[in-house]
Design a protein around this nucleic acid. Structure first.
Lengths: 254, 254
DNA sequence: GATGACAAGATTGTCAACAATCGAGGGCCG
DNA sequence: CGGCCCTCGATTGTTGACAATCTTGTCATC
């Protein structure tokens, strides 16, 4: 019943960095809609986002759309080609690697602080979140499960209480879906459910080393599902991968 | 002779996250000018930045200024009060603590990667930077020394090669001067010179533990010069600190 | 038939005028 | 004399039109 509300609430909170800056509600609304679309993997990398079309769709002025797009650009969710337009970002494999490397450090930091500071009042909501994630997953609602999985990481960061680290993780998590879309190897994109539970167990037990190891392993699981090998073609590949012409063509002529 | 060029060059590179997004040169120019002003501690927290005044000063349109200010807002360099205007940010003590806590983690990560990956071609430019910093300091050019000190940290991050971590440190470093202005306890705001040298030595020796310890200690030196105590008054204090009425008044009535 | 210049359409970038909102100051009333 | 309200100035927020730029499609030429 309150799930929609709750999801919206989490999403709004998850916006974190941007949520506290209400530079006109309209801009915020457009920005968050587009950001949510990215989180749900509804926007394919490379898609052009035309100002007028968005303005019509959201019922706002082009200036508002421009502001929202500029903000998306700073988060690297879109790339801006002067006099050409803005396009959904197509992160390179190198960018993906950097993102996951940074994520390991940030999540480690968050887990470390969580082990120090968490008590039951922090753990209970996170356990509830994991439970809902499991339910969604078992009910076959994959998109919802994915979103709850993302929210788990964001909530964990938020509850640690460091706004800067939380904002950093928020940025990383927001950029990750585009990397997934651009470089996915296997199909199931969600976190492994038990990972989240085990991480919470380790935090509850104040076992720093285990919590750290589990989180690093967990991020590794995610990254392992992607093809981010060195020398892989990324943002520069352009049309080649879209047509499935990459790799084979370069390697074997036949 | 080429110092101005060099400083600009470093500054442009240091902009990092924002430098690669040329959404109209004008907006970029205004944004970087204001950002540099913050880095040089020329903008006192709380100062109102009026759109028309900036537009006149930079010889651009108000729309351009608006875009630049919106970007500054995302970096938390200014706060935007709807229908009132934008003001140079006045970070709270809590925000300052979060910033330094996050910085410890990020700088540690960077140092860790530097120990793994650096060779002489990376170390030489950094040593040169430290040398120039020392020269500037000994010549009494404090502002320049401060800037070179900042550039040391940014260059170190840049050379590690992880764009995400580099962007995060860039954001932290950019926000720090405002925290310094708002909560400074002692006068000299620059890094301790020898710290930088010793960190480079440890990296050159591939001594991870020593490098980490030195970096954490170094960040601690910086933070130690500030008054970021819990319960301290920060963004909310307003007029009190401006008039030098804070602290004493609250503690002792005389 | 291929290549180059050229023109048309669409999209972004720029701008100035207008509307809405807020804070300050003065005047009015209690 | 103190408090409240109202007007006025200043600043931000919004809108639409205009200019600049790029892409696409066409056509003449080699």
């Amino acid at each position: 019943m309150s799930e929609a509300q709750e999801q919206d609430g989490v999403a709004a909170m998850a916006a974190g960095k941007a949520a506290r800056t209400p530079s006109t509600e309209e801009t915020q609304r457009v920005f968050e809609s587009l950001r949510n679309a990215v989180l749900d993997q509804r926007l394919p990398p490379g898609l052009q986002l035309k100002e007028q079309a968005l303005a019509d769709a959201f019922g706002v002025n082009r200036a508002v759309v421009r502001q929202a797009l500029a903000r998306l650009e700073i988060y690297r969710l879109v790339t801006h080609a002067p006099n050409r337009g803005v396009f959904v970002a197509h992160p390179s494999a190198a960018e993906g690697r950097d993102l996951f490397t940074a994520r390991r450090y940030i999540e480690t930091a968050i887990v470390e602080l969580a082990v120090e500071r968490f008590d039951d009042s922090d753990l209970a909501p996170l356990r509830a979140l994991v439970r809902r994630e499991r339910e969604a997953y078992e009910a076959g609602e994959l998109r919802k499960a994915l979103r709850l999985s993302i929210d788990f990481h964001l909530q964990l960061a938020e509850r640690v209480g460091n706004t800067v680290l939380a904002a950093f993780l928020d940025e990383i998590v927001t950029r990750t879906p585009l990397v997934v879309l651009a470089h996915r190897r296997e199909s199931p994109p969600t976190c492994m459910l038990s990972d989240h539970e085990h991480i919470l167990d380790a935090i509850a037990a104040h076992d720093l080393e285990r919590a750290r190891a589990l989180m690093i392993e967990h991020v590794g699981h995610l990254e392992g599902r992607l093809a981010l090998d060195r020398g892989g073609r990324g943002a520069d590949a352009g049309i080649a991968r879209l047509l499935g012409l990459d790799g084979d063509v370069a390697k074997a002529g036949g």
